[in-house]
Write a protein that binds this DNA or RNA. Structure first.
Lengths: 218, 218
DNA sequence: GATTGTATGATTGTATACAATTATACGAGG
DNA sequence: CCTCGTATAATTGTATACAATCATACAATC
């Protein structure tokens, strides 16, 4: 979905702005002038407008008619809320995955975990970017395996939303190890076609990530 | 939020198209040409483009680069999935509302229910539009009372999404009565500051609506 | 007859021009 | 000194113009 995003200027501006907002480059209440943003990115106002309207829908920007677009940003409470919601929905997702997953998808999950474990074993210290990407990949496959485009859609959105926070969570090597172990347990439950167990484990997994985040001051 | 929607042409086109897609006026895979839509609504391509990009983000439209925008539509399974998700999240919402709600919001909830009960008592047969609106109002207040803009946002989205289905559910007078009774029970639990009970009741409430929908062939 | 290449038309992508609205500066009046 | 009103500038809202891409029709070739 949203394959056009990489192709059109509007899509690229959207992605760039979202990244910059979530990473904190644009701060709360910053004004996003169409002309200014356009000049910075070397495009005209039209694609910028499209992007701003989309960001408004995602809740990252507030548009006041005839006035302008202002960064909404996300508070620590927002992140906490998202993790509570995700905890429930990832549970539901794992349950459905346990009911619908294909052999091919099982293999993909296995591969993602194996690669993660491999990364952690490296003596040179693990690559944070890689681990984050593999974590995202594991969850993305799970979303797909739920067989619900609706659930997949909303979980993907939330996942992107807390991207910035996630990176800071996984830098803790201890947490990274536990996270991968939990992933393996979830996969085990799904392989065993045990929806109840899968749901509970996925549930707890997200709660653990959340608790770890809290320890880091979020 | 999204107050600009009523003000700008782009916002109005967005709402109109969403309504027409959800109501079934535009069917699956229908092509939405910018020029054609624009002429039908008496606006230029620019606001139509903005609307289409937003609809793409909501998953109601699929955009293929340099080709066009096509209606994605929502299947019965999508609706079923949404109700499962909503069931959980409305539960969470009711729980948080029981913890955070203000006196003013309690009054608003009371008022919405009283108006609903009044509508149902009318001998002339109840007004479907009114009942639907009041149902929406009850839930909207609850979303607000959760104190979580994130949860409120996602629940509002889903609520709009199944709007078409909701209307067909509430035409059943029997279901409408039970629905209002359940609303009153939820309010009771929240007033008693009983989060567990509120969560469970809200949970079941949505499941009941879902079951009723199923009986009607959804 | 099927297939491929090309020309033409239609549609989307982007930029720009113009209109409408709002913010700002400044002076008049109290 | 403060308030209000007006003029001007800046910004957003919308429409249109132009460029790029894609679909279609038709002819040439095998």
């Amino acid at each position: 979905m949203e394959e056009y995003q990489d192709h059109s200027l509007g899509g690229r501006v959207f992605q760039k702005l979202r990244e910059d907002i979530l990473s904190g480059k644009y701060k709360e209440n910053d004004e996003l002038r169409e002309n200014t943003v356009g000049k910075e990115l070397g495009v005209s106002r039209t694609p910028v407008r499209e992007a701003l309207r989309q960001l408004e829908l995602e809740g990252l920007v507030t548009i006041i008619p005839n006035r302008g677009a202002y960064v909404t940003g996300i508070s620590h409470k927002d992140i906490w809320d998202i993790y509570m919601i995700r905890s429930m929905l990832e549970g539901l997702c794992a349950r459905w995955a346990a009911e619908h997953i294909t052999e091919a998808q099982l293999d993909e999950l296995e591969e993602a975990i194996l690669l993660s474990e491999f990364q952690m074993k490296k003596e040179s210290g693990f690559n944070t970017e890689q681990i984050t990407a593999l974590d995202g990949r594991f969850h993305a496959i799970l979303y797909e395996a739920s067989g619900s485009r609706i659930l997949s859609h909303v979980l993907t959105d939330f996942h992107n939303y807390v991207q910035a926070a996630r990176k800071s969570s996984i830098v803790s090597e201890d947490r990274a190890r536990k996270s991968i172990r939990e992933h393996r347990q979830i996969l085990r439950a799904i392989k065993d076609r045990d929806p109840e167990m899968a749901e509970q484990l996925a549930n707890e997994h997200i709660m653990h990530v959340m608790q770890n985040l809290k320890k880091q001051g979020y």
